[in-house]
Design a protein around this nucleic acid. Structure first.
Lengths: 243, 243
DNA sequence: CGGTGTCTTGACTCCTCTCAAGTTCGGTGG
DNA sequence: CCACCGAACTTGAGAGGAGTCAAGACACCG
């Protein structure tokens, strides 16, 4: 059991001490391994009885489209994250999701999740607990959109992404590899792609951060933290709270 | 048990069929009934070991403050909603909350929730499931901030609020009573209070919606829905999914 | 009857968007 | 090997939405 730990298992164990039965159920979620090309849409807004996915490799993003064709990216997913959980919890899918890079993921049918949750309620608690932490990130993102200028938004976003990736062992204080395009940034930050470009240029010229060729480099980490008023508390994690 | 149903109990039963033991635990959460004046801060960002509250009467809002003194309201709570649940789930509170009106609420100590969850895992599942639906609302709010103009934001916000309140039996298609100030709207929508005033005036002059003297009146519901591209799917609710 | 909180309105500024041209670069096929 | 292509990235100019500052109106309350 120990050596087979997936990123997800590790994450869940941080919230709830899981029994053998829980881990069995979780293991069953990982049966249907699949891979998808960059750009493939995994979750379709409005669809019923949608499968969820557990991301094993690569990046994805979840988003909502507006009638005028604009889109707002809500969150990015990295290995160990659930994709489309809410679409199983509720009958109709309220968002879409697509692969940012080529990805590897386990498909979990809606019925499997509901059955699993009914039989392993502590696992259900753990999964939903983790979802609740994702909500904290969405909340921070919301504050970002509501009350920060374009530059602060960008700074905050890159710092948060960096912090999240460090938790999964990708990247460090100097920076991280990042497959996102400026269009992704625009859709996530509620800006136009043109303005994203200008903001990035300005941050680079100020010597704060460089985003080029798929790499984010924190040139002046402290300065960036100050500009963004960044604070990592909402990502805190220790031992399981429920024993 | 039947006649004692709180708004919260009714809400949870929509997601998970609860046992007598679950209902007992839930009942125990309601022991410490308290009331607070309008403006009282219930949840303090950064605090450890924070109590949560179950709102029974009145309105509250949860928000985050920024270092420059601005604030962003993340969500409003109405009777039946949890306040500060995430502050119990994680060790440090990541947001604040205050009473908008005079309110009645049950205080639930962190330890009581964690104990309750450990002993009644299906209740835990239900509570977190409900929290997940709140997340859907936060997501919609985020899209609102990221990709809609001030007018669309306002229209969408008022429609969503109206829809939520109808579910709790407050208000109807013609409008609802609303204790929020224009400052609340500004902090929720990421606008300045001055601009909120102008937007409200314009919507009123267009004959779409009137917000005056604590009352929101939908003068042209259809027109408002069109302007906001409003869609209620994400609030769907039927019978319990987990039996 | 002053005072405080809320709401209005006007004038001016500036941040971000849109439109419109390029440029760079990796890949693909002749 | 080179020409071409599309995707992503740049940059400039002009327009407009939303912010700020400032002043006043209104209403509720002790």
């Amino acid at each position: 059991m120990f050596i087979l730990q997936s990123p997800l298992t590790r994450k869940l164990a941080a919230f709830v001490a899981l029994s053998e039965a829980d881990l069995d159920t979780l293991e069953r979620f990982h049966r249907r391994r699949r891979s998808f090309l960059s750009g493939h849409q995994l979750i379709h807004e409005g669809q019923k009885n949608q499968s969820a996915f557990i991301l094993a490799e690569g990046w994805a993003c979840s988003y909502k489209m507006l009638p005028d064709g604009e889109r707002q990216i809500v969150d990015f997913q990295v290995p160990g994250d659930f994709l489309g959980l809410r679409s199983v919890l509720f009958r109709t899918t309220d968002h879409s999701a697509e692969a940012v890079t080529r990805i590897e993921a386990s498909e979990v049918r809606a019925a499997d999740i509901l059955d699993g949750f009914a039989n392993a309620p502590r696992l259900a608690t753990a999964v939903l607990w983790a979802a609740s932490r994702d909500e904290a990130m969405v909340v921070e993102h919301l504050v970002n959109l509501g009350r920060r200028s374009a530059e602060e938004r960008m700074a905050h976003f890159l710092l948060e992404l960096g912090a999240r990736l460090q938790l999964v062992g990708i990247g460090d204080k100097t920076g991280f590899d990042c497959p996102l395009t400026q269009y992704h940034l625009a859709d996530a930050l509620g800006l136009s792609a043109v303005h994203v470009n200008r903001v990035l240029r300005h941050l680079r010229e100020e010597g704060l951060v460089t985003f080029q060729k798929g790499r984010v480099s924190f040139d002046d980490f402290g300065g960036l933290v100050t500009l963004a008023a960044f604070d990592t508390d909402y990502l805190d994690q220790d031992g399981p709270l429920l024993r």
